[in-house]
Structures are given as structure tokens and as C-alpha cells.
Design a protein around this nucleic acid. Structure first.
Length: 191
DNA sequence: TGGCAGATTTTA
DNA sequence: AAAATCTGCCAA
């Protein structure tokens, strides 16, 4: 069970977002271990990307984005949900990969309980959904993925095709193609 | 199956 | 006022 090493997250952020597809996201939470294969990601590219939270400088909310690669950036959105990002690049450069969807693997009963639903395809098919299913909140903001209880394993799905599209739910720099997902996968958020 | 309104709260 | 979202409701 090998974790992705620090060097993985220091690659170009678009490359990190692409290479995270298929890898296994794991959270050893209070209700036990939950995990799943990452099937959809988006890249957010620092000061020049107007959709990136860090583009206009550091704030209380986005400060974890400015930490070094391999950290976790969790923020609350629309007052109700949380979104999970993995920070890339050296400290001071606010780039990260948003984890948008996961194919459930372990802890499916915990996910169903957290989400109050039974349909497996609807458990983690969106950034807010997967945080709710995994039990990820602001408490995990700033955590290391290279150590600790929230991490990504090298192991996972292989031999799939990737699709690239524009990002979801943004208005600024909406024309950039920085969303990536596994072709044909049934657990992504949107076609 | 797809589009739309409403929930809800932090942030700038 | 807007936001890196989700759900339920409605129509076709």
C-alpha cells in the first residue's frame, strides 16, 4: 500500500490532475476506512487562472492552497458542502487539483449512511457528494497526504481512456479545458 | 431526462 | 452579491 510521494505533486498541475485519475483515495475516518478510485478531476492554476481561489492572493479561506505540494485544501461552498483539493507546486504558488468524483471501493455502508441514500452511483459523483460520503470537512484542511489518515495510493484502475473538457460550475476562465475524467465511467458527475 | 428554483453561509 | 453544489420538482 504505497502512497503517492511528494515528487508526484510537484509535477505540472495539469499533469498531476491527469495522473490522479484511477488512483485510490483513502480516508481513515472516525467511522472506519473509506476509499474509492478517483475518476474525475480539475486543475486550478494559480495567479493566472481567474477561476482559482488563490488568484487574488491569500485569504483565511484559501490559505492552505499556498502551502507546499502534497497538502490538502478543503473549503466550504454554498454554505453547505465541502470540496477536496490536493495542493501541487512549492509553497507560495496557489495551484491544486479538485477531486470531483470517486468510484466507491471500501466503506460503502459508511458512505450510504453519511449521504442518507442507497444508490451507489450517486454516492461520490460530485465534489460535495464525495466529501459528505467520506466524512471530509474543514477539519482536514491543511493535512498532509504524505503522512496521516487522508492520502492517495499509487494503486488503482488501469488501461482506461481519458476525456478532457472545460471545468464545471465556474464563470471566470470558463473556456479553459482543465477537467479530466475516465471515459465511460459510471461514477463521474456529468457527461 | 433535462432544466430550474431553493437551500444556506462564508467571503470579499 | 456571488460562490469550484446538490436535491427535488416539474414538464415533456
Amino acid at each position: 500500500m504505497n502512497r503517492l510521494p511528494l515528487e508526484f505533486y510537484l509535477q505540472k498541475t495539469e499533469i498531476v490532475a491527469q495522473k490522479l485519475l484511477g488512483k485510490t483515495l483513502v480516508f481513515e475516518g472516525p467511522d472506519g476506512l473509506v476509499s474509492g478510485y478517483i475518476v474525475e478531476t480539475e486543475a486550478y492554476l494559480g495567479f493566472d487562472d481567474q477561476a482559482c481561489h488563490g488568484a487574488r492572493g491569500m485569504t483565511q479561506r484559501n490559505k492552505s492552497m499556498f502551502l507546499e505540494a502534497g497538502r490538502v485544501y478543503v473549503y466550504q461552498i454554498y454554505g453547505m458542502y465541502y470540496c477536496l483539493n490536493l495542493v501541487t507546486q512549492i509553497a507560495g504558488i496557489p495551484e491544486a487539483v479538485l477531486i470531483r468524483a470517486v468510484e466507491p471501493l471500501n466503506g460503502i455502508e459508511v458512505m450510504k449512511k453519511n449521504r442518507h441514500i442507497n444508490k451507489e452511483k450517486n454516492l461520490c459523483s460530485g465534489p460535495g457528494k464525495l466529501c459528505q460520503a467520506f466524512g471530509i470537512t474543514k477539519e482536514q484542511d491543511g493535512w498532509f497526504t504524505t503522512k496521516g489518515m487522508l492520502y492517495v495510493l499509487i494503486d488503482g484502475l488501469q488501461n482506461f481512456d481519458m476525456v478532457t473538457t472545460t471545468r464545471i460550475g465556474i464563470t471566470k476562465d470558463a473556456d479553459l479545458s482543465l477537467r479530466y475524467y475516465i471515459k465511460g465511467n459510471q461514477y463521474i458527475s456529468k457527461k
